[in-house]
Amino acid sequence: MSNKKVLIVEDDIIYSKYMSLGLEKRGFDVVVVRDGTEAFEEVEKNTFDLILLDIQLPKISGDLVLTKLRETYSPFELPIIMISAMDHTFDVVTYLKLGANDYIIKPTHIEVAIARMNTQLDLVELNKRSLEKTELETLNSLIITYNHEINNPLTVAHGMINLAKNKKDFVYLDKVEEALERIAGIVKKISELQNSGGVSKVDYLSGQKMIKLK
């Protein structure tokens, strides 16, 4: 498994060195930058698993850096943990509302910081697996839906065509047309799901689900 990559945005050279050396020693890959502009450049060039972001930075303040990053990356895509000095009037609620995942008060012992970082990294992983599972379930439901809704009229159409051929009677073709129209209707409903913003499912057989078509 590859090391997790962390970006530290911190203008305090001593504290950032404490954190970067401590994290590297414990198996993280670390990049350190001193301000928001450098942070944006790094995030553009490289993929990070987590960012440690100081609230008080030169040029662009930490809250503005956070806001800008959140325009592109959700808390589940890129966890951001704020770093604050103990004496700051640190409005935790404000930063969490802006999209920070958590915060640490410096000087925080490296093990405490890592515990909080790992919690966020685990949540990202959990969310990723949950999304994959949901996608797979939806795909399965779609396959079941196609099989159920389309298979029946297809069977009817097939049967009617055979009857028409055997009895050489065009009257059966009306039934074929009905079945094909029914199939076309189902296909159209399934296409419209794309614009509906979501799918709801109904129970099918043996714990499986199919997609509910209006």
Binding site: D11, D12, I14, Y15
Partner: peptide
């Protein structure tokens, strides 16, 4: 002063 304060914090 803010910069120095941060460093002093690390050294308790």
């Amino acid at each position: 002063a803010h910069t120095l304060k941060g460093v002093l914090s690390t050294f308790c």
